[in-house]
Design a protein around this nucleic acid. Structure first.
Length: 465
RNA sequence: GCUCCCUUCGUCUAGUGGCCCAGGACAUCGCCCUCUCACGGCGAGUACACGAGUUCGAAUCUCGUAGGGAGCGCCA
């Protein structure tokens, strides 16, 4: 049996971190078993679905690199099929028309809640065959009245529901359009989905879907209900924290492979391993090893993982991303070669590529001012003179490479009986304007001889005052 | 309210009856390395929600309690 999973978002908003994790698990499971992942857009809610949201979801998946093998299929394009199945269900006695008005149902619910009961449809049209003229009916599924439904869930184990707890859900609205729980059943059946992997907020829907599937004479798929992802404070992911588009992580300088690595470790682990390449995830991940409990989103750990990925990636992988972020900062970078040097010297001092871009501004834009406190601290009269002397020596240097620069500066410092730091900090201040940069030799090398010397001269002039 | 789900350090987790007075990672703090910032290394503190039971022995099994979550729509 070929594994077939599906990712089925509803296009009512952007793809957030929870949706991405579900997509990731569907994708990993399909890839691991050489199966197919189908993408299905659940857009039956005509009111809330938007084309922009569809595009955002597609963009998010693409950025993450989670490709699908089939689809996207749109539920709105399958209305004829749903109509046929509804007709079939009515014909076989598994569904019926209900002429209750919304007001009538609201009243029923109000009464039940007042009595402390679970609000549910009481089946008043279940056995009626007449109709109410002038009223457009809904269609309800005739759920079994007794017995139990067992969901054999891969992550939760055996979960038992009593049929008496379930009511006759609406499968077609009075305007004839089908509803979510019903469409899911028909789609999963038609698309021959073997593994339904979704958030565990759907666990309660599963017995209803199982009953419908049984009424249609189909074998149920394997179910895996994933624990939810909570906000950093342990509360439900909300707009205020965490519930942002996955594309925002791109904008903040995260690598998709790092985000995926972070997400795969939420609810799943493989011994003590923290770092996973995409290939390792595919090879090692198994849905059966997933935890049952919800987990909180921790940006700090994501950031750490992001740096781990940056440090292990080939520099060429990071160059275009850094270039993208620099451009967003209004900086037009020139050579790939220079960017690669920047990446290599900066990646161990930045958690994200955005941070790297910001920290690397000075490579492209000469400082217009100098950190005053640092100047007072590091630029004394004799140090000022030394910087002048070392500048002169640097200007004579034929081989403008980090090792050569290092040899020159440390040799000069040694000759003066001073530590390298005594000299490195003022030079750093001169070329960066601040006290933080890669090692001074690398910084000067990347800057280029002309630029470095020009900045030194300018700083010397500014500090002579 | 009813039904269902969940519960190990601040956070992500290891652990499937003895290897655990609980291991790793992020974060925090300290030390080392060091030209800054980092990276890296070393070390510290911090957890089995609670209560019963089963057992020679429980983080691991059972029951209860508490807390959290989800669902109960002509939303998905």
């Amino acid at each position: 049996m070929t594994v077939r999973t599906r990712f089925a978002p509803s296009p009512t908003g952007f793809l957030h971190i929870g949706g991405l994790r579900t997509a990731l698990f569907c994708w990993l499971y399909a890839r691991r078993h050489a199966g197919h992942m189908v993408l299905r857009i659940e857009d039956t809610d005509l009111e809330r679905s938007t084309p922009e949201a569809i595009q955002q979801i597609l963009d998010g998946l693409e950025w993450a690199g989670l490709d699908h093998d089939e689809g996207p299929f749109f539920q709105t394009k399958r209305f004829d099929r749903y109509r046929d199945v509804i007709a079939e269900l009515i014909e076989t006695g598994h569904a019926y028309r209900c002429y209750c008005s919304k007001e009538e149902l609201e009243q029923l619910r109000a009464q039940q809640t007042a009595r402390g009961e679970k609000p549910r449809y009481d089946g008043r049209w279940r056995e009626r065959t007449d109709s109410l003229p002038g009223v457009a009916p809904v269609v309800r599924f005739k759920n079994p009245l007794s017995g139990e439904v067992v969901v054999d869930d891969v992550v939760h184990g055996r979960v038992v529901f009593q049929n008496s707890e379930l009511d006759d859900l609406i499968i077609a609205r009075s305007d004839g359009t089908p509803t979510y729980n019903f469409c899911v059943v028909v789609d999963d059946m038609d698309m021959e989905i073997t593994h339904v992997i979704r958030g565990d907020d759907h666990l309660n829907n599963t017995p209803r879907q199982l009953n419908m599937l049984l009424a249609l004479g189909k074998k149920p798929p394997v179910y895996a209900h994933l624990p939810m992802i909570l906000g950093p404070d342990g509360a439900k992911l909300s707009k205020r924290h965490g519930a942002v588009s996955v594309l925002q992580y791109r904008d903040e300088g995260f690598l998709p492979e790092a985000v995926l690595n972070y997400l795969v470790r939420l609810g799943w682990s493989h011994g003590d391993q923290e770092y996973f390449s995409i290939e390792e995830m595919v090879r090692l991940f198994d849905i059966a090893d997933v935890n049952k409990s919800a987990s909180a989103f921790d940006v700090g750990k994501l950031a750490w993982l992001n740096q781990q990925h940056m440090m292990r990636a080939p520099a060429s992988r990071l160059v275009p991303v850094l270039r993208w972020h620099l451009e967003h900062e209004g900086i037009q970078a020139t050579s790939d070669d220079q960017l690669e040097q920047i990446v290599v010297s900066q990646r161990e001092r930045a958690k994200t590529l955005l941070e790297m871009a910001v920290n690397s501004r000075f490579f492209f834009i000469a400082p217009t001012s100098y950190d005053e406190k640092a100047v007072r601290k590091h630029v004394t009269a004799d140090v000022w003179a030394w910087v002048g002397e070392v500048s002169k020596e640097l200007s004579q240097l034929a081989d403008w490479s980090a090792p050569a620069i290092h040899a020159l500066i440390s040799g000069f410092a040694a000759a003066k009986g001073a530590s390298l730091g005594k000299l490195a900090q003022p030079i750093r201040l001169a070329v960066c304007g601040g006290t933080v940069s890669p090692p001074i030799d690398a910084t000067l090398a990347i800057l280029g001889k002309d630029e470095a010397l020009a900045r030194l001269a300018k700083a010397l002039a500014a500090w002579s005052a």
